[in-house]
Amino acid sequence: MKEELVFQMMDTHAGGDVSRIVTGGIDLLPGATVREQMHYLRDDADGLRKLLLDEPYGIPEMSVDLLVPPSDPEAAVGYIIMEVMGYPIYSGSNTICTATAVLELGLVEKREGRQRFTLESPAGLVHIEALVENGVVEAITCEGLPSYIDTYRSSIHVPDLGDVTYSVAYSGGFYALVEAAELGFDLTRDEERDLADCAHRIVEAIQAERGFSHYTLGDVGPLPFLHFMGPVEQVADDFYRSRSATYVHPGVICRSTTGTGTSARLALMNHEGLIKPGDRLETVSLRETGFIGEFTGTRREGTHQVVENTITGKSYVLSRAEVVVNCEDPMVECAGLHHILTSGHHAGE
């Protein structure tokens, strides 16, 4: 008899970034916290991430979020983020999508107006405010991770590009921040492939030259991300807008501007004295979608001025599906799945 593995999933998107929310069919994972469960998936059960981001089920531009039980009683649900580059401890777009899915699934009761609840990410507790109108989740506001500037306006020589000026922020991962115009870009959709190629060259050059260390997390690996910044337009006294594009992996520019990219940009604007608490920045993607980051305050962490912020966006449900994995399919690798899929969800045996 052929062997099939079955689990449940809800596809969503925020700003164009598709997040695949795995809602059922996965065994309880070892680990006392969501962070420890993430480590188990990363180190011992990476098959789920690979399955849903590789052919024939997915593409690298997608993300995966696995719902898990929280370890903190304050949280309604835990979630583990999986992307093509691995397991980030936090993501704004994935959090917006997960919070929406949690409401749509009834794991948190959906109520009209504004409501608050808490999720547990690998980075810790995340406080959510949802706006529901006529039964529709119109907006999710989530906390961005505390962000800070590690490096301000350094220069590096990049083959075929010349000398490139960049800053580095931490906002859930280390980001190189570059002015798009200085590299000849207007941040339009037809530039997407060239943006990815350019970003890859810059990131490779930075990785070869230096590493980065977080003030509490220590070494979190090579700098992975780059955020292209367009000119800042002041729309109102406390509201700004800027075109943006975020590179996350060779060949991959996020369809949204990303929540962590927006948080990084807020940290840079604060460092340059361009914003004050209560100011908001809307980052606009190549696809004309946007997230709104709000600068809520600062605090000192050693030598760093850390920016506190929130990210607001809207997620849309694309599909609810039962995913059937046929282990006889030569394009499918089941070895990393057997030990995490609930035994009651095996079929065809």
Rank of each mutant, 00 (worst) to 15 (best):
M229T: 09
E308W: 05
D163A: 13
D46G: 12
I206Q: 14
G25P: 03
Y247V: 09
A199S: 06
M229I: 08
V220M: 14
L195H: 12
P88T: 04
G15E: 02
E282C: 09
E143D: 08
G278P: 05
Y90R: 14
T165L: 13
G313W: 02
V325W: 01
Y316P: 01
R189E: 13
D238F: 06
T260S: 15
R20A: 07
Q37A: 04
H39I: 00
D160P: 00
L28G: 14
V108K: 14
T257Q: 10
G297W: 09
V132I: 05
R265V: 01
T312Q: 11
V34T: 04
G278I: 03
F228I: 03
Q37T: 04
A14S: 09
V248E: 12
V203G: 15
L341M: 13
T98K: 12
I80C: 06
D194R: 15
I59K: 15
V252I: 08
L161I: 04
V235H: 10
L341V: 15
G273A: 08
E322D: 15
G172Q: 00
T258L: 06
L51Q: 07
P88E: 01
E294V: 01
I292K: 09
G124L: 02
R300G: 11
G184M: 08
E3I: 07
L145Q: 13
G184K: 11
D27L: 14
T303S: 15
L53C: 12
L105H: 03
Q115L: 10
A180K: 01
M82E: 05
Q115D: 09
Y148L: 12
T262L: 09
G47V: 00
V323Y: 02
V332H: 06
I81E: 01
L281Y: 05
D11C: 02
P224D: 09
A123S: 14
D190S: 13
M269Y: 02
G113T: 07
T188G: 13
M38Y: 01
D11W: 06
L48F: 02
V168C: 08
T12V: 07
P70K: 10
P250L: 06
G25W: 02
L131S: 15
D17W: 00
L51Y: 14
D186T: 15
L223K: 11
T289Q: 11
Q234H: 08
S91T: 02
R20Y: 04
D72Y: 04
S147L: 08
A32D: 15
D72W: 03
R287C: 02
C327P: 01
V64A: 03
Q305M: 08
P224V: 02
E288A: 14
E143A: 10
V307Q: 09
S93E: 05
G297S: 12
G47Q: 03
G221M: 10
A123H: 07
S171Q: 04
M10C: 10
A169C: 09
E192R: 14
